[in-house]
Design a binder for these strands. Structure first.
Lengths: 246, 246
DNA sequence: GCAAAAGTGTTCGATCTACACCCATGA
DNA sequence: TCATGGGTGTAGATCGAACACTTTTGC
């Protein structure tokens, strides 16, 4: 693929969520401003699409370039197309001038969110990001362009979706404890959930396999480890289940 | 606005749902083929966007041009951007050549769905449609471009949304009976719903005002007429209600 | 032995489902 | 008087919320 094939009118942006067993994070890139850390200079990673490329493919390309990971959980949030969306702030325009052939063009973006296992990688610098890093979602209050709005839409969609499909497993290590899963749901909903009710509900779904392994080296009673049981999940989906609403 | 401002790379397409108290319909336009009625020649209305125009605004413009209605319920479905999405079938290409300045351009479309009161209007011919008409959703099995896929996505989103927000009122006359509302939900979910349970659930929401009027001229016990109570609905939304799942 | 998180059951109220008969009207 | 859809209540099952104590480990 060469530059000639870049479509200068449509981009994809990826809200990449991560979870470190404590907090929910989002991967942000820096416009490389010299004024130190400032959220309004941060953005979610994205790029113009190629003219021969699917939207999903473009999103996966961005993810791969930045994180090295393929086969990531990915879902479209929607299109954002305010004519001024990328030109409202002077700092945004400067950034665009530094990375785009047609910085003044009106660009519609198609936003995606994806869920990754944080420890699996450290974000790399890339063609479109001088630096990249994880920021706790709860501490993000402002971003470049319309990316704060995009982040909030992604978060809402994640909340809605995780009630209906157990996609949360994409954020956890392969082997995880019920407490970790519990904590994840609490972080996403930003509220306390009853421990016993949570455990009962999730176990009743029969989509977890108890590995008969225990945590080691923890200074308290070690927890059972589980993994996600894809087979049972598929069976369950086919039978049709509405939600496991928390 | 003149042609010069058309953005040849991005379009909007509108899945317009209607309900005649019997069936759910979708508004389709005809490519004007001379081969008689054929679903693969039908499409949902859409148009390229103007370069200075919001996506939502563009969708409203298409709706207005076709139906004359403003202030319509409108919601984004998402972006569809397969590079081949509009050029797969020969008949699609012919149509494009007849209406677009750059028929070969790759166009990403942002799809919307909207809900209208069918009797309020008859669709008009327009710059992008030689003719337009209502088709029962249950009888649509094929459409031009990727519009069948778009229709299905819109329908899914409608199903999801109507569980959470009482947007169905946008499909009904101002004054309606509980049976009509009941029928609407049955049509959307394409399954029978228990009459008594439905009535209880919807009345318990307190978002209907009984008008103390009855149907006239019906050959059976006349039904009470209701209207949607926007005030109570707003109160309810603010308190936060999850769903009135059917 | 103490700090820290794991793990476990029951009760109560709310909600969902299933189900059948009489009523008011126009023809 | 008949055909048509309108309108109503209850019992049983299921589900969700609230809630406190014992266990196992590392230090």
């Amino acid at each position: 693929m060469n530059k000639k094939e870049l479509n200068p009118y449509v981009s994809v942006d990826c809200v990449i969520f991560g979870f470190d067993l404590e907090q929910l994070y989002v991967l942000l890139i820096d416009s490389g401003s010299m004024e130190g850390y400032k959220q309004s200079r941060m953005a979610v990673p994205g790029d113009l699409i190629y003219d021969t490329e699917n939207l999903d493919t473009a999103a996966r390309r961005v993810l791969k370039e930045l994180t090295g990971i393929e086969n990531i959980y990915l879902e479209q949030i929607g299109a954002f197309g305010d004519p001024d969306r990328i030109g409202k702030k002077a700092s945004d325009r400067k950034w665009l001038e530094s990375i785009r052939a047609m910085p003044e063009a009106r660009v519609i973006t198609v936003a995606y969110y994806s869920l990754v296992r944080m420890p699996n990688f450290n974000p790399k610098a890339s063609s479109f990001a001088k630096s990249a890093g994880w920021a706790p979602v709860s501490e993000v209050h402002d971003l470049a362009f319309d990316h704060y709005e995009i982040l909030q839409s992604g978060l809402e969609q994640l909340k809605r979706k995780i009630k209906i499909q157990p996609i949360g497993f994409n954020l956890l290590p392969e082997k995880f404890t019920l407490s970790q899963l519990h904590k994840l749901y609490e972080c996403i909903y930003d509220k306390a959930l009853d421990k016993r009710n949570f455990r009962r509900k999730i176990l009743n779904l029969n989509i977890l396999t108890n590995l008969d392994e225990k945590q080691i080296g923890v200074p308290h009673k070690p927890s059972q480890l589980f993994k996600f049981n894809e087979e049972n999940y598929k069976k369950l989906s086919e039978e049709g289940f509405d939600n496991f609403g928390f």
